[in-house]
Design a protein around this nucleic acid. Structure first.
Lengths: 132, 132
DNA sequence: AATATTAGTTACTTCGCTGTAAGTGACTGA
DNA sequence: TCAGTCACTTACAGCGAAGTAACTAATATT
């Protein structure tokens, strides 16, 4: 059924749903942000900034902007000073959470095996420095 | 249950399973390669190269190397000339397919809405070029 | 002698995502 | 008058992933 679609991935950027989804989901901060909002419901800018300790202000605004432009999060600002802005997941954003979680669970289960495999390969490289 | 773990994502690189999985899965060609192998079972280098039309030889070898180092694919080479090398998914690699597919299905369902949202936002920007 | 085949390697460049640091606006409270 | 708050913006710099193009080994075929 979806096999026909998969073969389209031979093609370029926009025709390939796999590239699509990776481009949307594969950056450094989007998924963390989505998950934080899924976890806490609604958060203000600085609350997000505190939760995702290592993100810079710039990257947080950039991330929030693209997520909002894509309709994954909703932004509600209050006309008051100092400003107050609240972010939350839209329905579309919430629909991302389950597939994301399944990837997350996979990572939790599989990362040990992956890291073990990486180390095995590193050792092999060291053992055979290859005459050249 | 996993909430405790999620909060760890505040921390840095190696402690965060979400960054882990994105780093492993979020590059440009790895997932396409995994899915092609899941779809076709076993493939030779040039067969993969033909299936993923836009990948360069270099990126294909790089991608295959890291996937192999991480234990996601198996590489079997035959001692003959011209060379023959076959790639296939390991069990670990196969375990990645279902979560990947759930993301892929999400993309298929949600991309239209996302693209519509993007266009709506573009228009808004054009309508309000903001006096400066 | 030249060409084709397979599975790569090597050197180099480019692109864009990400990070750093400083500045902004509008108002409040000391 | 000056610092503080909140949610940003802007300009600039860096680095690593990705791309390009040419080259290689070893043999069979013409």
């Amino acid at each position: 059924m979806s096999k026909e679609n998969l073969r389209k991935c031979e093609g370029d950027r926009n025709d390939c749903p796999i590239k699509d989804v990776l481009y949307r989901v594969g950056d450094k901060w989007s998924m963390l942000t989505v998950i934080m909002l899924s976890d806490h419901g609604t958060l203000r800018f600085n609350e997000l900034h505190n939760l995702i300790e290592t993100i810079s202000q710039r990257m947080l605004t950039v991330t929030l902007k693209t997520l909002e432009a894509d309709g994954l999060i909703a932004r509600k600002m209050y006309a008051q000073i100092p400003p107050k802005v609240e972010y939350s997941l839209t329905e579309l954003g919430q629909s991302l959470v389950p597939p994301l979680m399944s990837l997350y669970e996979w990572a939790n289960v599989s990362m040990p095996a992956i890291k073990a495999s990486r180390e095995r390969h590193q050792k092999q490289d060291l053992v055979a420095p290859d005459n050249r």
